[in-house]
Design a protein around this nucleic acid. Structure first.
Lengths: 167, 167
DNA sequence: CACCTGGCTTTTGTTTAGCTAAGTCAGGTG
DNA sequence: CACCTGACTTAGCTAAACAAAAGCCAGGTG
């Protein structure tokens, strides 16, 4: 019947997809590289540009956009004998992209690594064990790719592509 | 001392970063949207293009690249009374991007959602509980963003930017 | 008060990503 | 055998994403 939204994937609105909306914010390479730097503790403009390997104009534009989008905050600080500067640091909204960055790095380590192995290793501050991005269900089980079922959520709406009367 | 790689982030080679290498493969919007479709079960060319909301030329180019990169495989199939076609399906390499897609969707649900809530919900096939991307250490602890320490890995090499003698 | 440094902005140009519209081609159907 | 359909390709274009090089400005130092 027509309410079978899952079987009728064509009727889904692309605009409803959270992945697409996330990509509107972090959907380009340099943004993710700058967020990587922020997550590793980089704070200052020139360090962002140099470490992420992007040109200064691009770094300036992306950082401005990241602040506008609320992923980074600027706030002034002062080193002794230096003038006041602004540093950029992650907001909660930005920090919550860490699973995305970690999952990307993990995949890169597994499938696009150089011979020498991973360049950096994240470890749990408390116990020293390596940190990974994992899929897990709220009941606490580890979930493999083929153990996942897709269900419609409350935000799912159908595209209204067909007029009420037949042509 | 000069061996303090972690304190001297500038000396890290950007090219060594697995995130950057992962982004070389999946660093654009349409690629991720097509992989989203593949993970939701889309198999055929026109469905990929329509559901991901990308034009046919772009869909063709990206799908070809994804096959070349080993994230998708084409293989022929035949519906009764139809001619033989190729369908695209995820390889292991492609399927292991699921944590990336899930983390992106999760972030979008949390920070860029529309009012109605998430459009789709992943649940664990066995128990019906919602599936999320989580950071966890190998000792089994859930790890928050501020509980992570960064350590150099075996693949970390320094950029040789300074000549052996001072200027 | 001349100079330096960090943090940008401006300019110019190239590359990549994307679209629309139209065309091609193989194979199955009437 | 003419026609249709699915799966693309080709052609032509716009817009966004980058880079390199140079300039600008505020404030602190000598």
């Amino acid at each position: 019947m027509t309410d079978d939204l899952l079987a009728d994937r064509d009727s889904w609105l692309t605009s409803t997809c959270s992945i697409a909306r996330a990509l509107d914010v972090v959907g380009n390479r340099t943004t993710l590289l700058l967020l990587r730097e922020a997550s590793l503790g980089t704070r200052r403009f020139d360090a962002f540009a140099r470490r992420a390997g992007v040109s200064e104009p691009v770094a300036a534009a992306r950082l401005r956009q990241l602040v506008a989008d609320g992923l980074l905050e600027r706030h002034p600080y002062r080193e002794p004998g230096q003038r006041t500067r602004d540093e950029y640091h992650l907001t909660r909204k930005g920090a919550e992209l860490l699973p995305v960055l970690t999952a990307l790095r993990q995949w890169g380590d597994a499938w696009a690594a150089d011979e020498a192995g991973p360049a950096i290793r994240l470890e749990h501050h408390d116990c020293g064990a390596a940190v990974h991005a994992r899929l897990r269900c709220d009941a606490g089980h580890d979930v493999a790719a083929d153990e996942i079922a897709v269900r419609p959520g409350p935000g799912l709406r159908r595209a209204d592509r067909n007029p009420p009367t037949a042509p």
